[in-house]
């Protein structure tokens, strides 16, 4: 609610009533403010849940699309479309980005299988390095083709440009998270490991494929619409995990609510700190998130892990 009434132009319940349905305030609300708030909520929910699913699939608490090369791969895919088929509709661009994201995440898992020592911190490091390599390739071509600025908007979530007609794909991301909710128990079982999964009669490969598809599609959607919010998929599931454990069916609703709430709060802060200017959401989440994350890291050794 609050999120829709904050902004440069005066939009308040009072001005809405005065202007009536055709007033300037109402129009602003429908065209810009409401889409923005919806986009924030949808992105927050989807990115948080995708982080949770990745953590179950990889069995590591420190992975999410921006620490596994997934987001960078999606951006590379989007760059390829922008160069070779710039007229493709948004949905087509998203599909290509999703395919790239899937391939990038698959590559990450392949590399992990080859690394014998599976230290907890090594896993996200590998992902960040892979993301760095893919990101470097993307940056090189973006630089050559003068697309650097566009690239920046894909990888740092900024919701100031969200208007009606430019965020609706995010509903598809929400649909993917509903699928994740339906399959929640499968993801918990996979989080127990391949041997437990087989023992309980599930096909490990299939659940992995389903999870990766959800992760890739959601990441691609977020990249083509608002841009990735770093850390979000890391912090939110970890907080929920500490509070109530990793039974996905039970934690998914909380991850969704907390994800949406966290993003909305960060967005409001970003819009108010330098009013009437804005600090991009990605930066606010990054700062708040890294502090929270440090706290999580430091309290971890006290647990028997």
């Amino acid at each position: 609610m609050l999120s829709t009434f904050i902004g440069v132009s005066d939009v308040s319940p009072l001005s809405l009533l005065e202007g009536g349905p055709d007033g300037k305030a109402a129009q602003l609300l429908v065209v810009s403010r409401l889409p923005r708030t919806l986009a924030l909520v949808l992105t927050g929910v989807a990115m948080s849940i995708v982080g949770l699913i990745m953590q179950m699939l990889v069995r590591n608490k420190f992975v999410e699309p921006s620490t596994t090369g997934t987001a960078e791969s999606a951006a590379l895919g989007l760059l390829v479309v922008t160069i070779f088929a710039p007229t493709l509709p948004l949905f087509g661009k998203m599909v290509v980005a999703a395919i790239f994201a899937l391939a990038g995440t698959g590559l990450f898992l392949l590399i992990l299988r080859r690394i014998p020592v599976r230290s907890i911190v090594l896993v996200p490091l590998v992902g960040i390095m892979l993301g760095g390599v893919i990101g470097a390739v993307t940056t090189f071509f973006a630089y050559r083709l003068d697309l650097l600025q566009t690239l920046g908007t894909w990888l740092t979530g900024d919701f100031s440009g969200i208007l009606r007609g430019r965020y609706e794909l995010l509903w598809l991301a929400l649909a993917m998270t509903v699928i994740a909710w339906i399959a929640a128990d499968r993801f918990t079982v996979v989080g127990l490991g391949q041997e437990f999964t087989t023992n309980l009669g599930l096909r490990y490969g299939r659940v992995l494929a389903l999870g990766l598809t959800i992760v890739a599609v959601v990441t691609a959607i977020v990249v083509v619409t608002a841009g990735v919010i770093p850390f979000l998929g890391l912090i939110v599931p970890n907080i929920v995990s500490i509070a109530m454990g990793d039974n996905v069916r039970r934690s998914i609703p909380w991850v969704a609510v907390l994800g949406a709430g966290f993003v909305l709060a960060c967005d409001i802060v970003g819009r108010l700190l330098r009013f009437p200017y804005e600090i991009p959401l990605g930066i606010v989440v990054g700062v708040v998130g890294s502090v929270l994350f440090l706290y999580l890291l430091l309290r971890r050794p006290s647990r028997a892990h």
Partner: peptide, 30 residues
């Protein structure tokens, strides 16, 4: 099919380090 065998034979390997935080109730339920 794996789902049929899962009602015939159960296996527990050694060194079960779980990354997932589950309660005893949840684990046994699975």
């Amino acid at each position: 099919p794996g789902s049929v065998l899962a009602t015939k034979v159960a296996v527990l390997r050694q060194d079960n380090h779980l990354a997932a935080r589950l309660t005893v109730q949840d684990l046994v339920s699975f």
